[in-house]
Nucleic acid binder design. Sequence first.
RNA 1: GGACAGGUGGGUGAGUGGUCGAAACCGCGAGACUGUAAAUCUCGUCCUUCACUGGCGCGUUGGUUCGAAUCCAACCCUGUCCA
Length: 379
Amino acid sequence: MAEFSFHIDAHKGAARTGRLETPRGTIRTPAFMPVGTAGTVKALTPDQVRSTGADIILGNTYHLMLRPGAERVARLGGLHDFMQWEKPILTDSGGFQVWSLAKLRKMTEDGVVFQSHIDGSKHSLTPERAIEIQAALLGADISMQLDDCTAFGVPKADAEKSMRLSTRWAQRCKTAFGDRPSQSLFGIVQGSVFPDLRQASAEALVDIGFDGYAIGGLAVGEGFDAMLEAIEATTPHLPLSRPRYLMGVGKPIDILEAVARGIDMFDCVLPTRAGRHGQAWTDDGPINVKNARYAEDKSALDESLDCPASRNFSRAYFHHLFKAQELLGPVLLSWHNIAYYQGLMARTRAAIAQGSFEGLRRSFRDRWCAGEAASGDAE
RNA sequence: GGACAGGUGGGUGAGUGGUCGAAACCGCGAGACUGUAAAUCUCGUCCUUCACUGGCGCGUUGGUUCGAAUCCAACCCUGUCCA
């Protein structure tokens, strides 16, 4: 029996719920993966992250390669041991930094050369090196192919060129990955907002054959509706039997709409970043605990969640912590936000299993899409 | 009682004749954040107006000047030192 396997337990339309089995544990899908870029889910201890129900977290090739260095992590026993997270870890390949750090890198057919944002030193990241770092040195359970995260707004010809490069890199990653029965490798669909490019990308990746398929290059400015259209143009061309991962997304409404279109896995910095900035996510939408109206609000953020940060402290206390710039503020609010997201995923899984997913989805749509656009709109 | 120094917007504190409703930082008010160069960034913050405009305004009062937070006089207050 394969050490990696994906089972779908129930589905409702395109939405499905299931389990991705790995040697380090089961990932319940649809899953939200907290982002732990630099070997830490910012502001949270592994225990706190575990307590929210997270089955898997992310790490980042580019950031760990620069500091502390992939070889050093390997000498220290691998990323799991280093950061004391024994459950699965998915590592991003550095492809996102191709986009977010566009000013600090040069691309060629062979790969990307980054100029470190820390000390200016040069670091080469090829598909082969990206796999070596993720699978061999960090010890990621799920490695991502190196890709070129296409910027939004580029002409179709450029989007196609970028997508084709990502496809060639996908093949090189697959070859470099070789036979690793206790680890897995995901390909990444690109193609910007062009349906035929998305389809071509998906089909090419399926031909190569991956353990799972990610959709990249979204939530980069295209807007809510365009993002959903890009997903719709992609998922029909991916095998039903493999997990689909929408990279970098998103707000709760984004996640529910993507689940409705057949996505199984998500990651997003939003809950942790927002948590550090005073924004708390709730079923009523995001609230800013720094706002004056919470100064004497005795209510908890969300008493329905089994998380101390969500139910034990008043909004007034959060308000005070942030106004006083106390470190506990970002810690507790990141904790709450991750717990909120995990709670949302648990409700989503249960709703799909019980046949009530449409109701859950509609309740969020009604609340957050009424009138103005709900999220992710291009500026 | 005497000698110095100084009084600027909620706070600290620039500015010493026009370009000053007055730098900067803080505070306060609000917004943003989507595979993390983010414990970050942006906007607003005298009154009035949707806006135009107008009205106050750099301790107080009076003066010099076309024009004053800036120069002069008196007064009030604060700090340090001496008695």
